[in-house]
Every structure is written in C-alpha cells, then in structure tokens.
Amino acid sequence: MSVLPSMIEIVRDNWLLLLVGQYPNGPLGGIAATLILSVLGIALAFPLSVVMALASLSPWRALRWPVMAMVYVTRGVPLLLIILWVYFVLPLLIGRSVPAFATMLVTLVGYEAAFLSEIVRAGIQALPTGQMDAARALGHSRLGAMRYVILPQALFNMIPSILSQFVSTIKETTLGYIINVPELTFAAGQINNRLLTKPFEVYFILAISYFVVCWTLTQAINMVERRITMRRTRDLAVSALTAIPASASGG
C-alpha cells in the first residue's frame, strides 16, 4: 500500500473542505477559519495585553493584582480546561448560548493577552531607566511617557516575540476541535470520519498543513528579526563614521 498517492487523492477530493470548510453552504472553516481565529485572537489580544502590562507596572495595587491573578491562572491552567470552562460556564452567566467560534475567540484573546502582557512588560522593563527619567524630567505624566517614549521603543523591540506568539496561537486553535469549532483540525476530523480507514494519511496531511503555515511564518519572523538587527548595527556603523568629522569640527 502506498501512502503518498492515497494522500494526494484525499487532498484532491477534499481540498475545498480543508481550505474553507462547509462554506458557502455552512460556516466558514478549514485553514481560513484557523487563520481568521488566530489573526483576530492576536489582534484583539494585543491592545488588551498593552493595557494589562501597564496595569501590572502600575504603582496602584488595585490595578496590579487582577492582572497578576489572570497571568498566574493562565500560566497554571491548561488552555483546554479554560476552553471547556468558558464553553460551559459563559452561557450560564450571560443566560444564552454562545457560538463555538465566539467561545474559542474569547478564550484565545484572554489567554494570549495574559502571555503577551508578560512579553510587553518585559519589553518595557528592558529599556534603560534613563528613558523614563528623561521623559518625566521634561514634565510628561507616567502615561504620557509610556505612550510617546517607552511603548514605541518597547513594542518595536518586541515585534519578533509577538509574531512567535502568533505562531503559537495558530497551533492553539486546534483545541477548538473539542468544542466543535469548524477550523482545520475539525475539517480533518470530518474527512477521517467519512473515510474511516485512512487516519494515518488524513492526519499526516493535517500535520503538513500546520507545518507549512507555521514554518512560513517562522521564516518571516527570522527575516524581520534580521532586519531589526541590521537596522541597529547600521545605526552604530553610521555613528562611528559621523563621530570623526564631528569631533574635528566641535570643540
């Protein structure tokens, strides 16, 4: 029995399902849903994480504690459990059912925001304290200093970390399978249920699909990282060059 022709056949018969799920006859699914879920998850989590990071660095305990509690919970509890918890408890709390996609999105946003906020916090704390001193000495409020001086630098430095978190998010969307979110893993499950005898091939296709998406993104991240490093070293090279005429003319 040959695996490769059989895999090609499965892809040929099901490529549309893998790409967009049941769409347009049903909800959007497949890789499209996975990517939308990840992009929305990070896009919504990011601003939330900045607010959380600022709260966790705040001098006021009332702001610090809720954020720290949330961070510790998300670190200490598996994502799958949080998904199940939100899935079963959120409808009870708000008194009506919540679509699986929305449940997954809310969970991802909260979960990613907690992790991202730690990245943002580290990025802020990694800057020299002189930056905050200088901004405060010029009369900026704490928030003003954050907005105009600290965050623009910290966030730029963190671009690679944020993108890595995006790749993690893509892999975490697979857990939506457990509450029937129609994403890529769910589509593969549907195909497997239909074929019954080809789990190896189906899940190998699934693995390759995730790998291609994540690997491509990781390569892109490496490129961005190289660009950032290059930009910094170029600045240093330029400053070494300009130092010579400057010292000749100054004094």
């Binding site: 002189g130 001193d133 200088a134 901004a135 010029l138 009369g139 001086v149 623009p152 630098q153």
Partner: peptide
Amino acid sequence: NHLRTRIGFVFQSFNLFPH
C-alpha cells in the same frame, strides 16, 4: 509635572529618545 517643565535637566548619559 508642571513643576518639572520649569526645571531643565541634562543627564550624564544624554537619554535622548532613540526612536
């Protein structure tokens, strides 16, 4: 903050905003 705007401060390590 207002008081600080009335006191110029120059640091040993310059602390210019690099961005």
